[in-house]
Write a protein that binds this DNA or RNA. Sequence first.
DNA 1: AGTTTATATGAATACACTTGAATACAGCGC
DNA 2: GCGCTGTATTCAAGTGTATTCATATAAACT
Lengths: 105, 105
Amino acid sequence: MNTLEYSAEVLKAIAQPTRLRIIELLRDGEHCVCEIFPAIGHEQSNTSRHLQVMLKSGILMQRKEGLKIFYSLRHPEVLEILRLAELVASREATERSALFNRKPV
Amino acid sequence: MNTLEYSAEVLKAIAQPTRLRIIELLRDGEHCVCEIFPAIGHEQSNTSRHLQVMLKSGILMQRKEGLKIFYSLRHPEVLEILRLAELVASREATERSALFNRKPV
DNA sequence: AGTTTATATGAATACACTTGAATACAGCGC
DNA sequence: GCGCTGTATTCAAGTGTATTCATATAAACT
């Protein structure tokens, strides 16, 4: 896999609403699955799958402690990517609403 | 669509190898479809579809000039996102190869 | 009018993703 | 050993995506 495909893989691991929620949750440090899935309002199985996707793409790491498994972010750049995406998205949103609300010619 | 879903939409528009290639092509300014699809080695129709995806997500803009349509990047942040993704990807790549090459315990 | 050129779109195919329910697995305590 | 708890995985259904081929559109030119 070349760098381009690898980059796409990393971005794809981030580019999903449920996973974005998880990443935001992990912003303040590690959390176990038992904390994550109620917080994001999804089934445990679904949450676990999203965590596996991010783990395999390399943006998360895990630490086992007894029965629980704690996940955390591995690269601070992921938070920066999220910040920039939100910036672009919010700019888009305001421009589109301005376009929608402006008087017809 | 809330900000989180919008952010995911923006990231999804970037998170694809062919589209990453197009974005890198547009780094130095606008290009028409007729320049883009030979450069990336895909069908014209396929290229057009990827451009539509990025146009609708808001990360590209278009300018018509006669028969040609020129596409360009609308947000410099997209290049920054790409840079960070490549950084994470390359770090992953080196760590994985190190893991792969190290002696077994 | 018709022709050519550049781009977009419809239709079909194949593949990947998301989800909840059910099930399997793994570590702990009894 | 057994049951309990936290995670992962399998299954099935529904949805979305990437691609190609063929066709449609739209602008320029004769």
